[in-house]
């Protein structure tokens, strides 16, 4: 008991200390690196809170892919950073902001402490109806059966987000390849890593999706790992990102949500309600949807990081400059 307490206390101190460090960090790149580490610490916190599914999501999306995005943004903004530092607000304003932020944090903490203890929960009802879905992981039960519509709409929200990123391109660049990830310099170790790691990464990703039905894991976590492998291959220069007008890629982007809606609509005839599954086939149908969603989420995440398309000559120039 006490040893657990010591670990928890150390974890909390580390999280708070790292958060302070990130806030105080001068260079955006350093702060982004700190953010990745911070995400990994939060993953441990979630594990300690016995929320393994959340921990995996935090590690894969909150820390991994978001961190990658921030690192990329920091690298691109580096030339403007000195200018930005010169225009930073005075000490009084910064102290004021700090005090206000602390007050908000205190207010949030107070509100959370106001909540009843033990917290009311649907966990028992979730567990009681789980056999009807053929699943073993209650989190997957919530995401794919009870609240399937939320998962469906979330997977759809990714599409406007991607279109938002794409729409940052120029009219000339439309139809070209995404230009955010430029291949690394030749002679670096990345190409080797990008040859060795993906077979294992892909296996882990697929395992996360497959295991998600009964154990912690699932399509979002699995897709994040798969997307990371794809990005590694693109950054290493082994494969180019597909042009945004690529028909196959467009199909992969939408196949998951479409498959979800199709099976959901079939549920009207077969199981009496939209997004319901006939009991005998519940698990295979859910797995089919998860497989489709994994493909689409992987494609969206990879393309979100790959950025807006640029005209082909510019893309070639960027690639050459690096190699």
């Amino acid at each position: 008991m006490t040893s657990a307490l010591v670990v928890d206390a150390a974890l909390v101190l580390l999280v708070l200390g790292l958060a302070l460090w990130i806030t105080a960090a001068r260079a955006a790149y350093g702060a982004a690196v700190g953010f990745v580490a911070y995400g990994l610490l939060l993953t441990l916190v979630w594990v300690r809170l016995a929320a393994v599914d959340v921990a995996m999501t935090e590690a894969a999306l909150g820390s991994g892919l978001t961190g990658l995005l921030l690192l990329g943004a920091a690298a691109r903004l580096a030339p403007y950073e000195a200018d930005e530092h010169r225009r930073r607000p005075g000490t009084v304003l910064r102290v004021l902001v700090g005090v206000l932020c602390a007050a908000i944090a205190a207010g949030l903490a107070a509100v959370v402490l106001l909540l009843p203890d033990p917290a009311p929960s649907q966990a028992l009802a979730v567990a009681a109806h789980l056999p009807a879905t053929g699943l073993g992981n209650p989190v997957t039960g919530v995401l794919m059966a009870y609240r399937a519509v939320d998962t469906l709409l979330e997977s759809v929200v990714l599409v406007p987000a991607l279109i938002g990123v794409w729409s940052l391109s120029t009219e000339m660049g439309w139809g070209g390849r995404p230009g955010f990830l430029t291949p690394c310099r030749s002679g670096s170790a990345l190409p080797l890593l990008a040859r060795v790691l993906p077979p294992f990464g892909i296996l882990v990703g697929i395992h996360l999706v497959w295991a998600g039905a009964d154990d912690p894991g699932g399509k979002f976590q699995g897709a994040a790992v798969l997307a990371a492998m794809w990005i590694l291959v693109m950054v290493a220069g082994l494969r180019e990102p597909p042009p945004v007008s690529d028909r196959l890629m467009r199909f992969l982007l939408v196949v998951g949500p479409l498959c979800f809606i199709g099976i959901g609509a079939a549920g009207i005839r077969l199981a009496g309600a939209f997004l319901a599954y006939p009991e005998a086939y519940a698990k295979p149908l859910i797995l089919a949807i998860e497989a489709g969603l994994t493909i689409s989420v992987t494609a969206v995440l990879g393309l979100l990081l790959a950025g807006p398309p640029v005209p082909e000559p510019q893309y070639q120039r960027q690639s050459r400059r690096r190699s």
Binding site: H129, R147, V149, A273, F274, A276
Partner: peptide
Amino acid sequence: YQLGGWAPPLGV
């Protein structure tokens, strides 16, 4: 309408 046939609070 109850989506998926699940009544609230479990369903939507």
